[in-house]
Protein backbone atom coordinates (compact mmCIF):
# COMPACT_ATOMS: atom_id res chain seq x y z
CA UNK A 1 0.00 0.00 0.00
CA UNK A 2 2.67 2.51 1.06
CA UNK A 3 4.81 1.44 -1.84
CA UNK A 4 1.90 2.04 -4.21
CA UNK A 5 1.24 5.49 -2.76
CA UNK A 6 4.90 6.35 -2.88
CA UNK A 7 5.07 5.32 -6.50
CA UNK A 8 1.90 7.24 -7.33
CA UNK A 9 3.39 10.43 -5.93
CA UNK A 10 6.26 10.36 -8.40
CA UNK A 11 5.36 12.61 -11.32
CA UNK A 12 6.50 10.37 -14.24
CA UNK A 13 4.63 7.40 -12.86
CA UNK A 14 1.53 9.50 -12.29
CA UNK A 15 1.83 10.82 -15.82
CA UNK A 16 1.80 7.30 -17.28
CA UNK A 17 -0.93 5.99 -14.99
CA UNK A 18 -3.26 8.94 -15.52
CA UNK A 19 -2.99 8.56 -19.29
CA UNK A 20 -4.48 5.09 -18.87
CA UNK A 21 -7.13 6.20 -16.38
CA UNK A 22 -8.56 9.22 -18.19
CA UNK A 23 -10.28 7.33 -21.07
CA UNK A 24 -11.96 4.96 -18.60
CA UNK A 25 -13.22 7.83 -16.45
CA UNK A 26 -14.41 9.75 -19.49
CA UNK A 27 -16.12 6.83 -21.25
CA UNK A 28 -17.90 5.43 -18.18
CA UNK A 29 -18.82 8.93 -17.02
CA UNK A 30 -20.09 9.74 -20.50
CA UNK A 31 -22.30 6.63 -20.56
CA UNK A 32 -23.81 7.48 -17.18
CA UNK A 33 -24.43 11.08 -18.19
CA UNK A 34 -26.01 9.97 -21.44
CA UNK A 35 -28.36 7.59 -19.61
CA UNK A 36 -29.13 10.23 -16.97
CA UNK A 37 -29.84 12.92 -19.55
CA UNK A 38 -32.13 10.80 -21.70
CA UNK A 39 -33.95 9.18 -18.80
CA UNK A 40 -34.16 12.45 -16.87
CA UNK A 41 -35.41 14.58 -19.74
CA UNK A 42 -37.74 12.14 -21.49
CA UNK A 43 -38.75 9.30 -19.18
CA UNK A 44 -38.90 10.75 -15.67
CA UNK A 45 -42.48 11.87 -14.88
CA UNK A 46 -43.04 15.64 -14.50
CA UNK A 47 -43.20 16.86 -10.91
CA UNK A 48 -46.77 17.32 -9.68
CA UNK A 49 -45.96 20.80 -8.43
CA UNK A 50 -43.05 22.07 -10.50
CA UNK A 51 -43.94 20.47 -13.85
CA UNK A 52 -41.00 20.04 -16.18
CA UNK A 53 -38.98 22.82 -14.57
CA UNK A 54 -37.67 20.40 -11.93
CA UNK A 55 -35.56 18.67 -14.59
CA UNK A 56 -32.78 21.20 -14.08
CA UNK A 57 -31.85 19.32 -10.90
CA UNK A 58 -30.13 16.79 -13.15
CA UNK A 59 -27.43 19.41 -13.67
CA UNK A 60 -27.90 21.51 -10.54
CA UNK A 61 -27.48 18.83 -7.87
CA UNK A 62 -24.33 17.20 -9.33
CA UNK A 63 -22.76 20.63 -9.89
CA UNK A 64 -23.52 21.79 -6.35
CA UNK A 65 -22.17 18.57 -4.89
CA UNK A 66 -18.99 18.77 -6.98
CA UNK A 67 -18.42 22.41 -6.00
CA UNK A 68 -17.99 21.27 -2.40
CA UNK A 69 -16.22 18.05 -3.30
CA UNK A 70 -13.64 20.01 -5.32
CA UNK A 71 -12.94 22.29 -2.35
CA UNK A 72 -12.46 19.27 -0.11
CA UNK A 73 -10.08 17.68 -2.61
CA UNK A 74 -8.24 20.99 -2.89
CA UNK A 75 -7.92 21.52 0.86
CA UNK A 76 -6.97 17.92 1.66
CA UNK A 77 -4.36 17.65 -1.07
CA UNK A 78 -3.01 21.09 -0.14
CA UNK A 79 -2.71 19.88 3.46
CA UNK A 80 -0.94 16.68 2.36
CA UNK A 81 1.41 18.78 0.25
CA UNK A 82 2.12 21.12 3.14
CA UNK A 83 2.73 18.41 5.73
CA UNK A 84 4.49 15.68 3.74
CA UNK A 85 5.91 17.99 1.07
CA UNK A 86 4.57 15.95 -1.82
CA UNK A 87 4.88 18.04 -4.96
CA UNK A 88 2.20 16.15 -6.85
CA UNK A 89 -0.51 16.93 -4.31
CA UNK A 90 0.20 20.66 -4.64
CA UNK A 91 -0.34 20.21 -8.38
CA UNK A 92 -3.66 18.50 -7.64
CA UNK A 93 -4.75 21.42 -5.43
CA UNK A 94 -3.75 23.93 -8.10
CA UNK A 95 -5.64 22.01 -10.77
CA UNK A 96 -8.78 21.49 -8.66
CA UNK A 97 -9.40 25.18 -7.89
CA UNK A 98 -10.56 26.45 -11.33
CA UNK A 99 -12.66 23.32 -11.86
CA UNK A 100 -14.32 23.80 -8.49
CA UNK A 101 -14.98 27.45 -9.26
CA UNK A 102 -16.65 26.50 -12.55
CA UNK A 103 -18.86 23.89 -10.90
CA UNK A 104 -19.81 26.45 -8.25
CA UNK A 105 -20.69 28.88 -11.01
CA UNK A 106 -22.72 26.20 -12.79
CA UNK A 107 -24.61 25.38 -9.58
CA UNK A 108 -25.38 29.07 -9.02
CA UNK A 109 -26.42 29.65 -12.63
CA UNK A 110 -28.74 26.63 -12.81
CA UNK A 111 -30.15 27.55 -9.40
CA UNK A 112 -30.95 31.05 -10.65
CA UNK A 113 -32.57 29.74 -13.84
CA UNK A 114 -34.70 27.40 -11.72
CA UNK A 115 -35.49 30.09 -9.17
CA UNK A 116 -36.91 32.50 -11.75
CA UNK A 117 -40.10 30.50 -12.53
CA UNK A 118 -40.30 28.79 -9.12
CA UNK A 119 -39.67 31.60 -6.66
CA UNK A 120 -40.32 34.43 -9.11
CA UNK A 121 -36.85 35.87 -8.58
CA UNK A 122 -33.41 35.38 -10.07
CA UNK A 123 -31.69 35.91 -6.79
CA UNK A 124 -32.93 35.41 -3.27
CA UNK A 125 -30.70 36.96 -0.61
CA UNK A 126 -32.47 35.17 2.20
CA UNK A 127 -31.63 31.70 0.96
CA UNK A 128 -28.75 30.17 2.92
CA UNK A 129 -27.61 27.66 0.31
CA UNK A 130 -27.39 30.29 -2.41
CA UNK A 131 -25.37 32.45 -0.06
CA UNK A 132 -23.04 29.59 0.92
CA UNK A 133 -22.43 28.78 -2.74
CA UNK A 134 -21.70 32.42 -3.49
CA UNK A 135 -19.26 32.68 -0.58
CA UNK A 136 -17.72 29.42 -1.80
CA UNK A 137 -17.17 31.04 -5.20
CA UNK A 138 -15.45 33.99 -3.47
CA UNK A 139 -13.23 31.55 -1.54
CA UNK A 140 -12.18 29.97 -4.84
CA UNK A 141 -11.48 33.42 -6.28
CA UNK A 142 -9.36 34.34 -3.27
CA UNK A 143 -7.41 31.09 -3.54
CA UNK A 144 -6.73 31.55 -7.24
CA UNK A 145 -5.88 35.24 -6.80
CA UNK A 146 -3.32 34.44 -4.08
CA UNK A 147 -1.78 31.76 -6.29
CA UNK A 148 -1.62 34.15 -9.23
CA UNK A 149 -0.05 36.91 -7.14
CA UNK A 150 2.98 34.85 -6.07
CA UNK A 151 5.50 34.20 -8.82
CA UNK A 152 7.51 31.47 -7.13
CA UNK A 153 5.63 28.16 -7.54
CA UNK A 154 6.89 26.57 -4.31
CA UNK A 155 5.93 29.62 -2.27
CA UNK A 156 2.58 29.94 -4.04
CA UNK A 157 1.87 26.28 -3.25
CA UNK A 158 2.54 26.67 0.46
CA UNK A 159 0.81 30.02 0.92
CA UNK A 160 -2.31 28.94 -0.93
CA UNK A 161 -2.31 25.66 1.04
CA UNK A 162 -2.54 27.63 4.29
CA UNK A 163 -5.42 29.64 2.82
CA UNK A 164 -7.22 26.50 1.61
CA UNK A 165 -6.99 24.93 5.07
CA UNK A 166 -8.18 28.10 6.83
CA UNK A 167 -11.06 28.21 4.35
CA UNK A 168 -11.93 24.57 4.98
CA UNK A 169 -12.12 25.22 8.74
CA UNK A 170 -14.39 28.19 8.06
CA UNK A 171 -16.78 26.59 5.58
CA UNK A 172 -18.96 24.85 8.22
CA UNK A 173 -19.09 28.10 10.22
CA UNK A 174 -20.06 30.08 7.12
CA UNK A 175 -22.67 27.51 6.26
CA UNK A 176 -24.12 27.58 9.77
CA UNK A 177 -24.18 31.36 9.93
CA UNK A 178 -26.08 31.78 6.68
CA UNK A 179 -28.39 28.96 7.76
CA UNK A 180 -29.36 31.21 10.65
CA UNK A 181 -31.39 33.21 8.19
CA UNK A 182 -34.89 32.15 7.22
CA UNK A 183 -34.69 29.60 4.48
CA UNK A 184 -36.60 29.53 1.23
CA UNK A 185 -34.64 26.62 -0.19
CA UNK A 186 -36.44 23.34 -0.08
CA UNK A 187 -35.00 20.81 2.32
CA UNK A 188 -32.80 18.05 1.05
CA UNK A 189 -34.87 15.42 -0.74
CA UNK A 190 -32.07 12.96 -1.23
CA UNK A 191 -30.36 12.71 2.13
CA UNK A 192 -33.02 12.44 4.76
CA UNK A 193 -34.48 9.94 7.20
CA UNK A 194 -36.69 7.30 5.62
CA UNK A 195 -35.00 7.31 2.21
CA UNK A 196 -35.27 9.70 -0.71
CA UNK A 197 -38.67 11.31 -1.26
CA UNK A 198 -38.65 10.77 -4.99
CA UNK A 199 -40.06 8.11 -7.32
CA UNK A 200 -37.49 5.74 -8.78
CA UNK A 201 -37.93 7.02 -12.35
CA UNK A 202 -36.77 10.44 -11.15
CA UNK A 203 -34.17 9.17 -8.69
CA UNK A 204 -32.14 6.77 -10.85
CA UNK A 205 -31.32 9.34 -13.56
CA UNK A 206 -30.26 11.76 -10.81
CA UNK A 207 -27.95 9.22 -9.18
CA UNK A 208 -26.58 8.35 -12.61
CA UNK A 209 -25.92 12.04 -13.28
CA UNK A 210 -24.16 12.48 -9.93
CA UNK A 211 -21.97 9.46 -10.60
CA UNK A 212 -21.31 10.46 -14.21
CA UNK A 213 -20.46 14.06 -13.27
CA UNK A 214 -18.04 12.79 -10.64
CA UNK A 215 -16.24 10.59 -13.17
CA UNK A 216 -16.07 13.40 -15.73
CA UNK A 217 -14.78 15.68 -13.01
CA UNK A 218 -12.14 13.04 -12.24
CA UNK A 219 -11.13 12.88 -15.90
CA UNK A 220 -10.93 16.68 -16.18
CA UNK A 221 -8.97 16.90 -12.93
CA UNK A 222 -6.48 14.25 -14.03
CA UNK A 223 -6.04 16.01 -17.35
CA UNK A 224 -5.38 19.33 -15.63
CA UNK A 225 -2.97 17.73 -13.15
CA UNK A 226 -1.09 16.19 -16.09
CA UNK A 227 -0.53 19.54 -17.76
CA UNK A 228 0.30 21.12 -14.39
CA UNK A 229 2.89 18.37 -13.73
CA UNK A 230 4.39 18.74 -17.20
CA UNK A 231 4.71 22.49 -16.72
CA UNK A 232 6.23 22.20 -13.26
CA UNK A 233 8.68 19.49 -14.29
CA UNK A 234 9.50 21.14 -17.59
CA UNK A 235 13.20 21.18 -16.77
CA UNK A 236 13.43 17.58 -15.60
CA UNK A 237 14.89 14.78 -17.63
CA UNK A 238 11.79 12.62 -17.96
CA UNK A 239 9.82 15.45 -19.54
CA UNK A 240 12.66 16.12 -21.95
CA UNK A 241 12.79 12.44 -22.87
CA UNK A 242 9.04 12.45 -23.34
CA UNK A 243 9.18 15.45 -25.67
CA UNK A 244 12.09 13.97 -27.61
CA UNK A 245 10.25 10.67 -28.04
CA UNK A 246 7.20 12.57 -29.25
CA UNK A 247 9.25 14.50 -31.79
CA UNK A 248 10.97 11.33 -32.96
CA UNK A 249 7.59 9.77 -33.61
CA UNK A 250 6.39 12.76 -35.60
CA UNK A 251 9.36 12.86 -37.92
Amino acid sequence: MWKFLHKLASPPHFYDLSAKMIPWFAIIGGIFIMYGTIAGLFFAPPDYQQGDAFRIIYVHVPAAYLSMMAYMIMAISAGIGLIWRIKLSHAVAAAAAPLGAWFTFLALATGMIWGRPMWGTWWEWGDPRMMSELIMLFLYFGYMALRAAIDDTVKADKASAVLAIVGAVNIPIIHFSVEWWNSLHQGSTLLRDGGPAMPAEMLYPLLAMIFGFTLIFGALLLGRVRTEVLFRERRSRWVRNLVCAQEGRNE
Binding site: I135, F138, L139, F141, G142, A145, L146, A149, I150, A159, V162, L163, V166, G167, N170, I173, I174, F176, S177, V178
Partner: peptide
Protein backbone atom coordinates in the same frame (compact mmCIF):
# COMPACT_ATOMS: atom_id res chain seq x y z
CA UNK B 1 0.79 37.33 6.81
CA UNK B 2 -0.07 35.62 3.53
CA UNK B 3 0.08 38.80 1.46
CA UNK B 4 3.03 40.55 3.11
CA UNK B 5 5.67 41.42 0.56
CA UNK B 6 3.37 41.00 -2.42
CA UNK B 7 2.68 43.78 -4.87
CA UNK B 8 -0.90 44.98 -4.90
CA UNK B 9 -1.46 43.30 -1.57
CA UNK B 10 -4.36 45.50 -0.41
CA UNK B 11 -6.96 44.31 -2.91
CA UNK B 12 -5.78 40.74 -2.51
CA UNK B 13 -6.06 40.95 1.28
CA UNK B 14 -9.71 42.03 1.01
CA UNK B 15 -10.40 39.22 -1.44
CA UNK B 16 -8.90 36.66 0.95
CA UNK B 17 -10.40 37.93 4.19
CA UNK B 18 -13.89 39.17 3.30
CA UNK B 19 -15.43 35.74 2.56
CA UNK B 20 -13.96 34.38 5.79
CA UNK B 21 -15.24 37.37 7.75
CA UNK B 22 -18.84 36.95 6.63
CA UNK B 23 -20.00 34.89 9.64
Amino acid sequence: ALTVGLHRGTALLSLLILPLAMP
